[in-house]
Simulated assay, not measured.
Amino acid sequence: MNMLLTNGFSVLKMPRDFRPMTDDEFFYYCQENPDHKFERAADGTIIVMGQTGGETGKRNSELIIDLGIWNRSTKLGFVFDSSTGFILPNGAVRSPDAAWVAAERWNALSSDERKKFPPLCPEFLVELMSESDVLRMAEDKMREYIDNGCRLAWLIDPKTETVRIYRSDGSVQVIQGFDNTLLGEDILPGFAFTLSLLR
């Protein structure tokens, strides 16, 4: 098994005759390698994600705190951090920086499904770009989320203070400047996030 570093992350290249891992095999592979964070593309390619730097970690915390406070008051669902892998309908396993799943969808999962990578796409999620992220690849990932059932997704780039809002109807709205406030719309009723917290 070889490792190839491209655009700030590593892709594990498997031998030609390598059989892609099942969902369970991939889950246990991740548990056996706790010092690394992995995602899996729909074609079975395993992607090694870089560790979060201090600034990105601080920003992620601001998002999780506000989303968690809103969720505790509404009790509409459950909030997940960037350590959680979700098995999307296309077979990819992705770990957004922040995610929210409605209570009825989470409660419909079996106990085993909850303990491993939940087989669903969150209704709402956030990807917070770091210095090494490539915009084109981040946009592709956001479209993948929407294509797999996400209803509202925010792609936030602190470097340029730009937010791209992806909606289930396929539209993408670009907001420039961290003097704005993002709303949860009808997906997260009453939720608002002040972008200036990410400066």
Rank of each mutant, 00 (worst) to 15 (best):
N2H: 08
N7T: 11
G8N: 13
V11W: 05
M14K: 12
F18D: 12
P20H: 01
T22I: 13
D23N: 13
Y28H: 11
Y29V: 10
C30R: 00
Q31A: 11
E32H: 09
N33Y: 03
H36A: 15
A42R: 10
V48P: 08
M49W: 10
T52I: 09
G54M: 15
K58C: 06
L67E: 08
G68F: 05
W70I: 01
K75D: 08
S82T: 08
T84P: 10
P89Q: 07
S95V: 05
S95R: 06
A99P: 15
V101K: 01
W106N: 08
N107D: 13
R114G: 13
K115C: 12
K116H: 04
P119Q: 07
L125F: 02
E131I: 14
R136E: 14
D140G: 04
E144I: 10
E144V: 10
I146A: 02
N148S: 07
N148E: 12
G149K: 01
A153E: 02
A153F: 00
W154R: 02
W154V: 02
E161K: 11
V163R: 01
I165M: 04
I165G: 06
G170H: 08
S171G: 02
T181Y: 01
L182K: 06
E185T: 00
L188P: 13
L195S: 11
L198W: 04
